[in-house]
């Protein structure tokens, strides 16, 4: 195998490792809220530092690969996609941290209501994240396509969560109830953003495999 191919494989491994880390962060942050265990937040914060460091290392690796090898064709698409996926993964880590921090505030008070749709959202988003990374790892554009479809499901769940919480808010003037409802909305928003980042990754994978840019097709 050429030295360049070894370096490309190493880049792929770094990104897949970072994706595992981010997947853990998402799972732990959701567990913190569902299991009402604030001690889990520490685990997320520790991993965030690692994710931030990996983002810098991956970007540096990509820049060196471009500068020293002048890649073209599939190699160029792989590296530019890797840079974008890297940025999406880091922001997914940030969303997990957001969920955790809001969770810490939320856990100071009793449960507003049993959580039903938020765990459903979390589970759909987890599948999207897993599949988007798997599609990158296997260069599987078909799997990437399934992620795009799943995003509609997450958006619909977010709509339901918002609707339910708005109902709570209109029926109360209690400050803590309002504050907990807003926190749950922010968590739903963060989960939706996670789905959007997974969608971005899936779009990058389709570009990487087929050289076809499918972003914003409906709006342009």
């Amino acid at each position: 195998m050429r030295h360049f191919d070894l370096e490309m494989n190493d880049l792929k491994k770094k990104l897949v490792d970072m994706a595992s880390l981010v997947q853990e962060m998402i799972k732990i942050s959701v567990d913190e809220i569902v299991k009402r265990d604030e001690s889990l937040s520490k685990e997320v914060f520790i991993r965030e530092r690692e994710a931030n460091l990996t983002e810098i290392i991956v970007d540096d690796t990509c820049l060196k690969l471009i500068a020293l090898n002048q890649p073209v064709g599939a190699d160029l698409r792989f590296i530019t996609s890797a840079m974008k996926i890297n940025s999406d993964l880091e922001r997914m880590g940030d969303e997990a941290v957001n969920i955790c921090e809001i969770g810490l505030n939320l856990l100071k008070y009793p449960e507003l209501k049993p959580l039903i749709d938020i765990p459903k959202m979390a589970s759909a988003v987890t599948i999207m994240v897993k599949d988007s990374i798997e599609s990158f790892n296997l260069s599987d554009a078909e799997l990437a396509n399934t992620v795009l479809t799943k995003d509609d499901e997450v958006d619909e769940l977010k709509r339901i969560v918002f609707k339910d919480l708005l109902q709570f808010m209109t029926n109360t003037s209690d400050q803590t109830t309002l504050s907990r409802a807003v926190d749950l909305m922010l968590i739903a928003k963060s989960l939706e953003r996670l789905g959007d980042h997974a969608t971005n990754i899936a779009e990058d994978v389709i570009f990487m495999v087929h050289g076809k840019d499918i972003r914003h097709i409906k709006s342009i």
Binding site: V72, G73, A74, L76, R77, G211
Partner: peptide, 11 residues
């Protein structure tokens, strides 16, 4: 040709 050639041989 240099970003997304149609033929594998070219790539």
């Amino acid at each position: 040709i240099f970003t997304n050639p149609s033929k594998q041989e070219t790539d």
